[in-house]
Structure formats: C-alpha cells, structure tokens
Amino acid sequence: MAARRNVDGFAAGLMLVLCMIWGLQQVAIKAAAHDIVPIMQVGLRSGISASLVAIFMLLRRERFTLKDGTLLPGLVAGTLFAAEFLFVAKGLEHTSASHMAIFLYTSPVFTALGLHLKLPAERLTPRQWLGTGIAFGGIVTAFAGGFLGTAVSPETLKGDFFGILAGAAWGVTTVVIRCSTLSDAPPAKTLIYQLATACAILLAYAAATGQSGAVTMTSVAWGSLIFQAVIVSFASYLAWFWLLTRYFASRLSAFSFMTPLFGVSFGVILLHEPIDRYFAVGAALVLSGITLVSLRSAGRSRDTVPGLAGEEA
C-alpha cells in the first residue's frame, strides 16, 4: 500500500470546504423533501453522479477493469454507502435532525476503532484518542440545548438507533476502503463503485416500498438534486477519496466532526433555525479536539511504520 502522510495545511483546508458542503447537503435535502422523498433524492443523485464519474474517467482515459481485485470490496463499499443513507432516511422518520446529526457523526469513532485494530500505521496515540473524545463531546454539547427538557420516547430511541447504524456504516466503509485493494485504486473508481451500487439498491428499495412515485420536479427540487449530484456526490466525494489515498484516514475522519456544526449554521442562516450558547461552546470543543488529533507528535510517532519514512502522525 502507498505511504500515507499526516494531515497538512492543504488537506486541512480542503477538509474544511468538504465539511461545509456536506453540512449544506442536509439543508438541501430538507428543503426539497416535500417534492422528492429523501430516499429518492439520494438514489437519483447517486445515479447522476455515477454517470459524471464515468465521463470523468473517460476524459482522463482511466481504465475500469474488474481484474485488479477491487470488485468485491467495491461492491461491499457501495452496499455500506447505500445502507448509510437508508438508515438516515429511516431514522429521520422517528427522531429529530439534531439527534440524527449526533449519531451519524459517530462515524470517526467506528473508523478509528476499525483502523486501530487492522492497521498498525493508523493506531491513535492517547493524545489523539483524547482529542477524538473531546470533539465528540463538543457535538453532544452543541446540540444539548435541543435535548434539555425533552422526554425521550421509544420512537425517538428507535430513530437514534438508526442514526448509530448509519454512523457505523459510514465508518466501516472507510475501513473497507483503507484495508482493501481500493486503498490504492484511483479515487474515481472507488467512487463509481459506491455510487452505482447505491443507486441500484436505493432506487430498488424506493420502488419496493412505494416511494418511487413521490417525485415532483419543482425549481427547488431541481436545484437540490443538481447540487447534491454535481457538488456533493461527484466533486466532494471524489476529493474525499483522493485524500484517503494520500493521508491517514483516521486523522481525516476527525474533521468530519465539523460537518454537523456547519449544518446547524446553514440551518440558522437559510432556514432561520434558532441557535443557543450550547452550540458556541460545542464548536470550540470540536475545534480543540480536531487540533489534538491532527497536530504532529514531537519526535518519532507511534504511527510511524518501520520502513515507511515520513509517516509521522
């Protein structure tokens, strides 16, 4: 496998942009939910994006062969990708978006645990585990205002459980990519596996459950679908998989803690949702945790793999 680097300024800046995009996609899905049910939005955008990635590969003259050992892990990653968004859609039928944001973004914990067990180069130091814990605590704090004084019903717990499953599916997807032949595959190839598989599974699920006809193509629906297909599922995911081929996945995943904070911020700006002091404190904790996870250790790190020069955490 190719050597990975610690997160540098370029990677951190790109992850910041990606987290902003991923935070905005939740607002886009919500804005168009009355015109296109979420499961159809994700299924359609995956199909459109898969076509864009195929065109991208043709223009770059990238070969798509099934003889390089990527077919099985590609199908597994695609199935997990579909499961993640299926769990999100199901969970939102029972719990609030704030609860879903918290449990979905437990994904870095599942990623870090999986990679810690599978790859010596991805093992986190105590300081970095502390940073992960602080960042997750920041997410809980940021949304605490929405929990106080609210009784937890069985329906809410059911939705929260779907959120945890979505976070686990996302985290395991990263582990599968990092620990298989997809680790060194072209990012576009990894992405097209996920998008094409997810499109087939999600649209089939929508048809089987009678949701495929719940589509009204208004201007809001078109805008949301184009944003999700071109910017989110094509450009941002392609950039994400490119980063995974060059940097430690566990460090990159820690930045995803910022996504729900951006999501809430866009909700305040675009949907006029209220904000409280808990969010401000939580944001500070998240940024502090990410800093702990991402900063280089003094001297030689435990993440350095003998024989792979320059892989310091």
Score class of each variant (00 low, 15 high):
residue 6 N to W: 04
residue 8 D to W: 01
residue 12 A to V: 09
residue 12 A to F: 15
residue 13 G to W: 06
residue 15 M to R: 15
residue 17 V to N: 02
residue 18 L to K: 12
residue 20 M to S: 14
residue 23 G to I: 09
residue 24 L to S: 09
residue 27 V to W: 11
residue 29 I to R: 15
residue 33 A to R: 03
residue 40 M to V: 15
residue 44 L to T: 07
residue 55 I to H: 14
residue 55 I to L: 15
residue 57 M to V: 11
residue 59 L to W: 14
residue 59 L to G: 09
residue 61 R to S: 13
residue 62 E to W: 10
residue 64 F to H: 03
residue 65 T to S: 11
residue 69 G to Q: 02
residue 70 T to F: 12
residue 70 T to Q: 02
residue 84 E to G: 07
residue 88 V to P: 10
residue 89 A to H: 13
residue 92 L to F: 07
residue 92 L to R: 15
residue 94 H to E: 05
residue 97 A to E: 03
residue 97 A to I: 10
residue 106 T to Y: 12
residue 108 P to E: 12
residue 109 V to G: 14
residue 110 F to T: 05
residue 111 T to G: 07
residue 116 H to D: 05
residue 119 L to W: 00
residue 120 P to R: 01
residue 126 P to I: 02
residue 131 G to V: 03
residue 133 G to A: 06
residue 135 A to N: 02
residue 138 G to W: 01
residue 139 I to H: 10
residue 140 V to H: 10
residue 140 V to S: 09
residue 143 F to M: 04
residue 145 G to K: 10
residue 148 L to F: 13
residue 148 L to C: 05
residue 148 L to D: 01
residue 149 G to D: 02
residue 154 P to L: 04
residue 165 L to N: 11
residue 168 A to T: 09
residue 169 A to L: 08
residue 170 W to P: 04
residue 172 V to Q: 02
residue 178 R to W: 01
residue 178 R to Q: 00
residue 180 S to E: 00
residue 180 S to C: 04
residue 200 A to E: 00
residue 203 L to R: 15
residue 203 L to V: 10
residue 205 Y to P: 07
residue 205 Y to H: 10
residue 209 T to A: 04
residue 210 G to D: 05
residue 211 Q to T: 06
residue 213 G to K: 00
residue 213 G to D: 15
residue 214 A to H: 15
residue 215 V to M: 08
residue 219 S to D: 04
residue 219 S to A: 10
residue 221 A to D: 03
residue 223 G to W: 10
residue 226 I to V: 12
residue 229 A to F: 08
residue 234 F to E: 00
residue 235 A to P: 03
residue 241 F to P: 01
residue 241 F to K: 01
residue 243 L to T: 06
residue 243 L to V: 09
residue 249 A to L: 00
residue 250 S to V: 13
residue 254 A to K: 04
residue 256 S to W: 04
residue 258 M to I: 06
residue 260 P to E: 00
residue 264 V to W: 05
residue 264 V to M: 13
residue 268 V to I: 08
residue 268 V to D: 00
residue 269 I to F: 14
residue 275 I to Y: 07
residue 276 D to G: 13
residue 281 V to I: 10
residue 282 G to C: 03
residue 284 A to P: 04
residue 284 A to R: 07
residue 286 V to M: 05
residue 290 I to Y: 12
residue 291 T to V: 09
residue 296 R to A: 15
residue 303 D to G: 13
residue 304 T to N: 13
residue 305 V to M: 07
residue 307 G to D: 07
residue 309 A to E: 15
residue 309 A to F: 04
residue 309 A to H: 08
residue 311 E to P: 10
